[in-house]
Simulated scan of single mutants.
Amino acid sequence: MRTVNVVKAGGSVLRSSDDYLKLAEVALRLGARVVVVSAMKGVTDALLEAARLRDVKRFGEVAARLREAASDLGARGEAEEWIRRGERAFRSYAASPAPQLLDEVLALGERVSMVLMRRALEALGTRAVALDGGEAGIVTDDAFTGARPIISECVDRLRARIRPLLERGYIVVVAGFTGATRDGRTTTMGRGSSDLTAALVARALEAERLYLVTNSPYIMSADPSLVPTARPLSEVGILEADAMARLGVKKFHPLTFKPLLDAKCVIVVGSSPPRGTLVKPELPPPDLKVVTPIRGYLAFVGHGSRKLAPVIAEELSLPLAEVGRLYFKLKLPRREAELVEKAHEVMLKYW
């Protein structure tokens, strides 16, 4: 089988039916054999809010948006099957709330999204098949709304399910975020977990490249809304990216990079692939990559953390709260915004 590239499209870049056609073109240009999709922007939040309020009207508004997008792409019939399944789950949940039913409701956004992407790919002349997470081979525990994948089983099942389709010439579209228990009950793996789905697929297929398509051109050295001078990172080590995910420093699911820690896959994060931040097995310079405020602390990530933690703590006159191999935290007082900019300036001195 020829080289496998995987593309994951986040909800931030899937706002309308036109965006699916644009992303389908990008996927083909990148030689993608598998495309993992999130829900359209705002859909999961809207479903969650409708479920919280048990508001049938709000759910109907989401369903109407999905139907309109499906009609635009000529996918109304297939999308309607998933929408009706979501409607049944929502009615049951509104009558008697249960986490398993909530996962059926929340999975709707990704399930329709996979149908839209499959149709967009077909409109460009390719053969494609769409699978939700459970159908593709994502097997999880039964911690509904925050399920954890059973990685070894996922790898085996994904490989067995997807490889034959690739060998027959299909591009496979997988619904991110979603999975299933061993006995087939729908689960979701928490916010941001479509990246994790893509990483599991890349691991299973021994992918050469995984492109995580976001609304930012690169992973940045700080949040540009807090630090206007934030710089793009051309490269980070996968262990550093894993630390960012685990700490919640960037908008990655905590387990995003775990399936690929010992793989040879190169990950590209950005809005204009193949350009973006390369996530590689090595630990490239600089010693520190990122600084961000998080839950009362300033968190720094980079392979020079042990060496630079006491130096930067002293320069900023902040108490050192925690030091790890790839990160450290400083206790943050209330004047957060001002100190984040100063911390970023200090970090850049060691680039």
Rank of each mutant, 00 (worst) to 15 (best):
residue 60 G to C: 03
residue 308 L to N: 10
residue 8 K to H: 06
residue 206 E to K: 14
residue 159 R to N: 14
residue 58 R to V: 00
residue 14 L to E: 06
residue 223 D to A: 12
residue 120 A to I: 10
residue 160 A to K: 15
residue 31 G to S: 07
residue 346 V to F: 04
residue 255 L to A: 06
residue 319 P to D: 11
residue 187 T to A: 04
residue 343 A to V: 12
residue 71 S to E: 15
residue 15 R to V: 09
residue 209 R to E: 13
residue 226 L to Y: 13
residue 100 Q to V: 11
residue 21 L to Y: 01
residue 149 P to I: 09
residue 154 C to V: 11
residue 246 R to D: 00
residue 136 A to C: 06
residue 133 G to L: 04
residue 69 A to V: 12
residue 343 A to Y: 10
residue 323 V to R: 01
residue 326 L to E: 12
residue 282 E to G: 11
residue 251 K to D: 07
residue 328 F to V: 03
residue 171 I to T: 14
residue 327 Y to I: 00
residue 22 K to R: 15
residue 295 R to N: 14
residue 159 R to H: 15
residue 312 I to S: 06
residue 82 W to S: 09
residue 211 Y to K: 08
residue 230 A to D: 09
residue 279 V to C: 01
residue 295 R to D: 14
residue 111 R to C: 00
residue 152 S to P: 00
residue 36 V to Q: 02
residue 259 P to H: 04
residue 67 R to A: 10
residue 173 V to C: 08
residue 50 A to P: 02
residue 317 S to N: 14
residue 49 E to M: 10
residue 268 V to F: 07
residue 232 P to N: 11
residue 8 K to D: 04
residue 83 I to W: 04
residue 274 P to R: 14
residue 207 A to L: 06
residue 343 A to I: 12
residue 199 A to G: 02
residue 199 A to N: 06
residue 326 L to C: 09
residue 146 G to K: 14
residue 298 L to C: 12
residue 154 C to L: 06
residue 349 K to T: 13
residue 324 G to N: 06
residue 3 T to L: 00
residue 142 D to H: 10
residue 316 L to Y: 13
residue 340 V to M: 11
residue 240 E to S: 09
residue 181 T to E: 05
residue 299 A to S: 11
residue 239 L to P: 00
residue 310 P to E: 13
residue 77 G to W: 04
residue 309 A to R: 08
residue 278 L to G: 00
residue 251 K to M: 03
residue 350 Y to G: 03
residue 80 E to A: 13
